[in-house]
Amino acid sequence: MASSGLQLLGFFLSLVGLAVTVAATLMVQWKKQYQGKTHRIYEGLWMSCSGNERTTCEFHQYLLKLPTEVQATRGVMLLSIFLSAVALLVSTVGMKCTRFMDGKDESKSTTAMVGGIMFMVAGLLTLIITSWYVKMIVQIFNESHRLQSFEFGNAVFVSWAGGLLTMAGGAFLGCRRCTQSQSMSSNHLLSTSHPKSNYV
């Protein structure tokens, strides 16, 4: 089984990635627009804000009237969060430092690997939908009047960071090759040490 330190590192990175992804999903600065020097408009996946020094925010009331990029990004980000939450439970069961499935090392290793793969898929979904969202915003910005169109905001960078952290943590949790190499090396050391003890 992979070392508990490697699994804990992967679990910690995945947990941070999930938290960052949730924060990005709730952030309002997915789009931004400046009107003049002081008036600012921000639009997120759930609400929009506008104002000068003090901004007022309101939730999106009509789902079907939202732009396509907002609807698609909202759905995929929620799917990624749900998949990461399930992966969190699965990887907890399969980690070496937990007491679930004691005595079943192979099953625990497989469970941890499945959780890691789920984390990697969730992170990949976040990266893909965020990159597509940025592409749509840039395309709209180039095709319309630039003074009246939106630019992508800071939530995009936070979302990218969350996806990368989730994928990195999943890669550590799903490191099956590391597991096999460690078990093979330990078995090799045991097999070479016992025959020598039979000789004087």
Results as ranks from 00 to 15, higher is better:
residue 175 C to A: 13
residue 10 G to S: 09
residue 198 N to L: 07
residue 57 C to A: 00
residue 105 D to W: 10
residue 15 L to G: 05
residue 44 G to S: 02
residue 23 A to D: 01
residue 146 R to P: 01
residue 120 M to P: 03
residue 11 F to E: 04
residue 17 G to F: 01
residue 4 S to P: 07
residue 126 T to K: 02
residue 173 L to D: 11
residue 140 I to T: 08
residue 89 L to K: 05
residue 185 S to W: 10
residue 126 T to P: 02
residue 151 E to T: 12
residue 161 A to E: 01
residue 160 W to N: 02
residue 85 A to Y: 00
residue 17 G to R: 01
residue 1 M to N: 05
residue 191 S to Q: 11
residue 184 M to I: 04
residue 23 A to N: 00
residue 9 L to T: 00
residue 109 S to W: 06
residue 93 V to W: 06
residue 108 K to W: 01
residue 38 T to H: 13
residue 114 V to R: 14
residue 166 T to G: 08
residue 180 Q to C: 07
residue 115 G to M: 09
residue 160 W to V: 08
residue 164 L to F: 09
residue 11 F to Y: 12
residue 175 C to K: 04
residue 31 K to E: 15
residue 180 Q to S: 13
residue 98 T to P: 08
residue 45 L to Q: 06
residue 184 M to G: 00
residue 10 G to Y: 04
residue 73 T to E: 13
residue 77 M to H: 09
residue 2 A to C: 05
residue 159 S to T: 02
residue 55 T to N: 01
residue 79 L to H: 07
residue 4 S to K: 06
residue 25 T to E: 06
residue 41 I to N: 10
residue 67 P to S: 12
residue 69 E to F: 11
residue 110 T to E: 09
residue 47 M to I: 02
residue 17 G to S: 01
residue 60 H to T: 05
residue 72 A to P: 01
residue 44 G to T: 01
residue 171 A to S: 11
residue 23 A to W: 00
residue 35 Q to Y: 09
residue 117 I to M: 15
residue 21 T to Y: 06
residue 57 C to M: 00
residue 137 I to N: 07
residue 193 S to K: 12
residue 185 S to K: 14
residue 56 T to R: 04
residue 50 S to I: 01
residue 68 T to N: 14
residue 82 F to E: 07
residue 154 N to G: 15
residue 106 E to G: 02
residue 160 W to T: 03
residue 33 Q to N: 14
residue 194 H to Q: 14
residue 71 Q to V: 13
residue 109 S to E: 12
residue 117 I to F: 14
residue 29 Q to G: 04
residue 91 S to D: 09
residue 150 F to S: 12
residue 196 K to F: 03
residue 98 T to R: 15
residue 143 E to T: 11
residue 53 E to H: 06
residue 33 Q to C: 10
residue 79 L to N: 10
residue 124 L to E: 08
residue 163 G to V: 01
residue 192 T to N: 10
residue 69 E to V: 06
residue 196 K to L: 12
residue 54 R to P: 00
residue 91 S to N: 09
residue 118 M to Y: 11
residue 78 L to I: 12
residue 34 Y to N: 03
residue 140 I to N: 14
residue 73 T to D: 11
residue 186 S to W: 10
residue 19 A to M: 10
residue 77 M to V: 05
residue 7 Q to P: 03
residue 2 A to L: 09
residue 32 K to D: 08
residue 129 I to N: 06
